[in-house]
Design a binder for these strands. Structure first.
Lengths: 229, 229
DNA sequence: ACCTGAACACCGTTCAAGT
DNA sequence: ACCTGAACACCGTTCAAGT
C-alpha cells in the first residue's frame, strides 16, 4: 500500500536539509499536509506520518485542528487560495469570452498542479473566500453579457464540473489503490473498431480542454441569442 | 469515523434475514462489495467488514482476488455493466441528437444510483467490456453525422468528464470525511452579491444536466458546420 | 482447492499526564 | 496553552496451518 518511498528531506526542513522546528500553527500544518498530499497522494497522508515529517508527536495537531477532516478542509482552502493569484491581471478590454477562457485556464492550471488533491476538491463543499471571489467575478462578467440568473448558475457550475471531471481522468490518482494488468486489457480495444479508430489519433489534453470549453461557450451563446430574439 | 450504523440484515442474507451461506466466488464477493459501498461509502468498505457481512474470514477473499484494489476494479466493471442495460431499446430512427441524449442520460442515471462509487469510477482506468461497448456505440453514432476522428475522441471524453464531474458535486461523498461547520459559512455568501443573486433562484440537477448537454452538442454541431463550409 | 487464526505493520482518536 | 505516551478500536496483508 506504500506508494512512494518517502525519500529525501522531510518536508519540514530547509534547503540544506536542516530540520526547521518552528512553532506549530494551523497554517503551517496545512501547508506541509498539502506538500505531503502532492507527494504521496490521499492515501499516503496520515496524521502519524505528518507528525514524523514535522518531527512532532501526531497528537500535537489536535490542538490546532479538531480532526483529519478539518485538515482536508484547510488544504482545499489553500489550493483554492492559489486560484486568485493573477486574477487582477485580467484585461478588462478583452471580450467576455477571452476573459472567461483566461479565468478557466487559470483555474485549471492551478488545480492541475495538485493532482492528488483533485478528488478532495471535487467532493468537499467549500466556502473558501478565494473560491467565492472567483465565482463572483465570473458571474459578474457573464451577467453583463446578458445571461439570465438561471443560466448563470448553470454555466459556472457546468464549467467547474467539466474542468474538474476532465482533470480527474487526465491526472487523477485511482481511488482504492493502483489498477493492475492493463497489458492484455489494452489489446481488447481492437474488438471495438469505432473506439480503436478514434483513439488512434492521439490526444492533447490542453487542446482538448480548450476546444470543449469553446464549444460549451458557443452553445451557451447560441442559447442567449435565441432567448433574445 | 463510522459513517452509518450498519443496521439491518447483513448483505449476505435473504429477504427474511436468514444468512445465505453460498460458495464464495469472485462475482458474489464483488456484488456484495458494491452493495456495501452503496450503503457505507468508500471509507466504510473494508475487507474485514466485508468478511463479517458474509460470515466468512476476511482472508478467504484472497483466494478469489489478489488484493483490495482488484475488488475495486471488479466493482467498477459491475457498475459499468449496468450501463449497457437497455442500450438496445434505442430507436434508430430518432435523430442522432435524440439518441445521444438518451445514451448519456442512461449513463448518468445508472451512475447516479451509486453515489459512493463515483470517485472510483472517475479515477480508475477501466477496460470493462460494457464501457468499451458503450463508447464504441456512441462514437459510431457520431461518426455517421460527419465528425472527424479527432473531434469524436474529444466529444465522448468531454461528455463523460462533464457527466461524472457534475454527478460528483451533485451526489458525491466528500473525500476525507464529512465537512464541518457550514452554518456560518453559508451566511458568507452575502459578501458576494453576484454569486448570491445567481444562487437564490434554486437549482434542478436533471434540468441543469440536460441544458448543458444540449449546449455542448450545439457547440460541437456548430463546429461541424463551420468545418464543412 | 479453499478456508482459518495468529501475527505484523499500519491507521485516527481519546485520555490522562506532563510542562 | 501546548505537547507527549500509552491505549483502544480499527486497517490490509503475509504466512503457516488446517481440511
Amino acid at each position: 500500500m506504500t506508494r512512494r518511498p518517502n525519500s529525501g528531506n522531510p518536508l519540514g526542513a530547509d534547503a540544506e536539509g536542516r530540520p526547521v522546528r518552528r512553532a506549530l500553527t494551523r497554517e503551517y500544518i496545512i501547508r506541509i499536509a498539502l506538500a505531503m498530499l502532492d507527494r504521496d497522494g490521499v492515501e499516503g497522508l496520515s496524521m502519524r506520518k505528518l507528525g514524523a515529517e514535522l518531527g512532532v508527536n501526531p497528537m500535537a495537531f489536535y490542538h490546532h485542528l479538531p480532526n483529519k477532516s478539518a485538515l482536508f478542509d484547510g488544504v482545499v482552502e489553500a489550493v483554492f487560495g492559489e486560484v486568485t493569484v493573477g486574477l487582477d491581471t485580467l484585461n478588462r478590454e478583452d471580450s467576455w469570452r477571452e476573459q472567461l477562457v483566461a479565468l478557466m485556464c487559470q483555474f485549471r492550471t492551478v488545480l492541475r498542479q495538485h493532482p492528488n488533491v483533485l478528488l478532495v476538491l471535487a467532493t468537499r463543499p467549500s466556502y473558501a473566500p478565494s473560491l467565492m471571489a472567483f465565482g463572483d467575478r465570473t458571474i459578474g462578467l457573464l451577467r453583463d453579457v446578458g445571461f439570465t440568473e438561471h443560466d448563470l448558475l448553470i454555466m459556472i457550475s457546468s464549467l467547474r464540473s467539466y474542468t474538474i471531471g476532465q482533470l480527474l481522468v487526465e491526472v487523477g490518482q485511482p481511488v482504492g489503490g493502483p489498477t493492475t494488468a492493463p497489458d492484455e486489457a489494452a489489446a481488447l480495444i481492437s474488438h471495438y473498431p469505432n473506439l480503436a479508430k478514434a483513439v488512434a489519433g492521439g490526444y492533447d489534453p490542453d487542446a482538448h480542454y480548450e476546444l470543449t470549453l469553446q464549444a460549451m461557450l458557443d452553445g451557451f451563446e447560441q442559447r442567449l441569442r435565441r432567448s433574445k430574439s
